[in-house]
Design a protein around this nucleic acid. Structure first.
Lengths: 221, 221
DNA sequence: GACTTTAAAATATGATCAAATTATAAAATG
DNA sequence: CATTTTATAATTTGATCATATTTTAAAGTC
């Protein structure tokens, strides 16, 4: 006798599993190179195999996880060249999205961005790495949403899934105090309706953050 | 009694199903807006539900298919704005990949590209739409591979999955005779080792092709 | 047109088979 | 005899399927 219990929200299990795993990649303790097993996840998340499988295929397609040849799945370990690719892609996509977002500013939007940025500042001040990662992601995510460009948005989000685990490691090493954000300039430019200036500001912010990731390859790896 | 028959190649079923569906999106008769059902595919491909499900999640993540809210899956119908996004993204990514590919030229590479381009010319001449789509894809795919930049490559391939069905429609309307390709200039520039020139040539080729897609929105839709 | 019924399709599970890794034991080499 | 190598067994994990349940859309009823 099988009884598929109705999970809390109206969302299907594979969607819930996907979100949990995605958050583990972005903010959690999944480090680059770490192995992930299907059976382990079915137990850990108390879900069936099929939903877990679906979530994994999705995450693999998004670059959050990597299918090694021999049926094994793990968190990708970025190479120096990979980081260069990510820098190039983000530098191309993110400014465009912010440029487009500037056309769609509303009071609610700007308020939400300001709140997220304040929370980010607080996380930096108190050394809360988890909070830093979450609020920083949240800030950029909102910008992507505002742009109303679903295809470019999905590309940008994909990039986040790829450098997420590495960013997590970087933050652990350098500490939040050394993480500068240039969101204030972005907000000012957007408030002034200056799309070009906002795009340049976000490019600068992106570069600053990604260079931090790249630096880890010059020292250790 | 279950007997999972060993399929021809050593590849898992979900991988085979994925490839078949992907090809149907890129070259086949899946038109924009067309609905796709899981049970229909299990019958059509004579595969189980789980592998089909996995393949679909993957294709949805790659933008080849779209999950509408109510558990329905269909081939996305592009908007004019979507096409603009695709043009922007391809214009940013493709030239970079060709630039990088120029550093990794080998005799075998160039020969394969030349063969693919000749096959493309033939398809254009004989009005073979299916052949045009396949060889054109093949040509660009090889360039992506040569660049040795897996992340940018996956972004570029994702774009193809998105405009694939629309390109199919365009070809049906305008006929192959009106489809110009600028691959000769790309090949010449690459043979000369001029990465910058090759990048510009591919940008021109990409723009030419994508404008053809965009034009359909100015007329009909 | 609103409500009920019916049918089809999606979701989720556990069972079963296949493959790969690890553990264990035997053999070989120095 | 210790160490490495090789072969074999045991265990873990992945892949697939059939089936039960839930949900949604369509058809029928008043």
């Amino acid at each position: 006798m099988i009884k598929p219990q109705k999970n809390g929200a109206g969302l299907p299990t594979h969607e819930l599993v996907y979100r949990q795993l995605r958050d583990m990649v972005l903010f959690g303790d999944l480090v680059p190179g770490q192995a992930v097993t299907i059976q382990g996840l079915t137990q850990y998340l108390s879900a069936g195999m099929t939903p877990v499988r679906e979530a994994l295929r999705r995450l693999i397609a998004e670059g959050a996880l990597e299918a090694q040849g021999n049926r094994r799945i793990s968190v990708p370990r970025l190479t120096r060249a990979n980081v260069d690719e990510l820098i190039f892609a983000r530098q191309a996509i993110d400014p465009k999205l912010v440029f487009m977002a500037t056309s769609n500013i509303t009071k609610a939007n700007m308020a939400a961005l300001t709140v997220a940025d304040a929370a980010l500042d607080n996380a930096i001040f108190t050394g809360d790495i988890q909070g830093y990662l979450r609020h920083n992601y949240s800030f950029h995510y909102m910008l992507y949403d505002m742009a109303d460009a679903p295809i470019l948005r999905s590309v940008a989000l994909r990039m986040w899934l790829q450098f997420g685990p590495s960013l997590r490691v970087v933050c652990g090493r350098v500490g939040t105090q050394n993480l500068v954000d240039e969101h204030k300039e972005v907000l000012l430019a957007m408030a002034a309706g200056d799309a070009e200036r906002a795009a340049n500001a976000i490019r600068s912010d992106v570069l600053q953050g990604m260079e931090q990731v790249r630096r880890t390859f010059d020292t250790s790896d």
